[in-house]
Design a protein around this nucleic acid. Structure first.
Lengths: 320, 320
DNA sequence: CTGAAAGCGCTTACAG
DNA sequence: CTGAAAGCGCTTACAG
């Protein structure tokens, strides 16, 4: 019977149809636990990211979803909120469920051994967005240093000389790379990076909004802000507007990610497209290849970002 | 051994510790598929909503997550994007995995028989946000008609007489209820509802943004917009600002949901708090009760919304 | 080609 | 209290 339901060529067409019809009639439900126990394939893929509600991950997840759907894999989502313990619990759950693989944006502080452990227990991993030093797995992410370089150079070319970097943390590879790209661009242009010009931390709209006060009170007031991501940029612009200044005129602001929202922000946000779709699609397809027994060599795949210029950046306005 | 690992009192303390230590040493992984096959409990709960990336659902999901976490249930998320087929596939997957229950915001057009089928196959269901006529299960949602009534009355009390309703669809109970609340409030105040004053459809920031043009071109131009949700309201405000008008001054706008974002929008959005946390927490806890064999009677639980007045609403400004 | 049997890793009722 | 055995529902190798 199981052969018939799976359309095996070993079973004749009419027999197959008769069995399928009968199965439907009695409301037969295929028991995947039993099948998986026998075959040790579950058809489950885990995805764990910092926060699935963050629109940056949301766009990645959509493309992972559509890629996995085509291979009829069920995917289980989880947030780790950058808590190593939550991430470990989730990986443990995946192992217990016999998941076939995991796509993860590793939590801050993830040791390579965590990933090694998963792989050794038959749970192949693919990383997105962040790297883990020493983990021997494929990684798909944007070229962050290059991306913030694009944004910073754009501001420099408009004539800005005092440019702050708002948000992000040194605890992730992404954070270090984005900051480095900004610093490199500044130095290449012979510009100084004021010691207080980095406001580290913010990664949400709310935090960007709150950072506006600190930003506007900076010594040698910068005329532009290169933000960690679109959320911070939009929050910052709201904060700037609240303070009576006009973002895009009085202060130039760049974002990062090019979320759908960036285009409809007021003013429309100049930002760096980060290839979310690409990252998701390629990570999922690499994992599927692995599951199908193909050898996928560990590699750092850097998607090249692109600058999208809109209305939130302009020439600097010097005030008295 | 399995008794020891589950801390059964049948096993002496020292023996238990020795076994646990050994299990850790050899890297033992508990096989939940096997256990579930035997016990027919899987520890999996499914959650399916229109779109998990929508911040309205995101806030509900967070509270479901924390509630289920405490009972050590794994939850599987899925979007149905209001496609009945996707929802059915997901429910099917849950049945095949032997999930213990499902929390769903039913897709448009979900027949009661779909829910009945799940329940009959041992998958108890709890609904959130939307009702399905004839489905005999608990439903947790906000009192939508009351909520839009609050918003509309607030606008009326400020002196507005021409108020449009932007967004939402008649295909969901939520959509019908919110529209009805608006109409009731208008009629109770003896105000006319202009036939073109309802712009149905928009439910996203993008769509709200795009609706601004249509709104601003309405005959007998309304002075205020009661929006379907915060996303539409924020999008609409952005569109209004793009057109050179000042939202909150030239046009009053109300939202619905009171997302975290509402407070930091520019201007800060007057909106209706919709009890997302409550909805999630209570739905999860009702499902857990069901799983534990308690009889949970099917009922409509309406969470009372509250108006939060901010800067996006003010007295009407009549222009020449 | 068909059918009966073994076995995946658990839990639980049962015999010792 | 302990240990061996049955059985959950599949898949697959094997005997007929």
């Amino acid at each position: 019977m199981s052969l018939a339901l799976r359309d095996s060529p070993l079973v004749a067409g009419t027999t197959r149809d008769r069995i399928k019809e009968h199965a439907r009639a009695i409301g037969y439900i295929y028991n995947r636990r039993a099948a998986s126990l026998r075959t040790s394939r579950s058809g489950i893929v885990g995805v764990v990211v910092h926060d699935i509600m963050n629109p940056f991950f949301a766009e990645i997840l959509r493309s992972i979803e559509s890629e996995l759907d085509r291979s009829r894999q069920t995917f289980i989502l989880s947030n780790h909120y950058d808590q190593l313990e939550k991430q470990r619990t989730f990986i443990d759950t995946l192992l217990q469920l016999g998941a076939d693989g995991v796509i993860m944006s590793p939590a801050i502080g993830t040791p390579a051994s965590d990933i090694l452990m998963a792989e050794e227990n038959g749970l192949p991993a693919v990383l997105i967005a962040r790297t883990v030093e020493g983990a021997d797995v494929p990684v798909f992410r944007g070229d962050d240093a290059y991306g913030t370089g694009l944004a910073t150079n754009h501001l420099i070319s408009l004539g800005h000389k005092r440019i702050a970097m708002i948000g992000g943390t040194d605890q992730t590879s992404t954070g270090r790379d984005r900051y480095q790209g900004y610093v490199n661009a500044m130095e290449a242009a012979g510009l100084e990076v004021g010691p207080s010009w980095r406001i580290a931390g913010p990664r949400t709209k709310q935090a960007g909004f709150e950072a506006a006060g600190q930003f506007l009170a900076l010594k040698d007031k910068p005329t532009a802000a290169c933000c960690w991501n679109d959320l911070v940029a939009i929050g910052l612009m709201n904060g700037i507007a609240r303070a009576g200044l006009v973002p895009g005129v009085d202060i130039s602001v760049t974002g990062y990610d090019d979320l759908e929202e960036a285009a409809i922000a007021t003013p429309a946000l100049t930002t760096v497209w980060n290839g979310q779709r690409e990252v998701g699609r390629r990570a999922a397809s690499a994992l599927l290849d692995k599951l199908n027994g193909q050898t996928v060599r560990p590699s750092q795949e850097l998607i090249k970002p692109e600058l999208h210029v809109r209305q939130s950046t302009g020439k600097p306005v010097e005030r008295a």
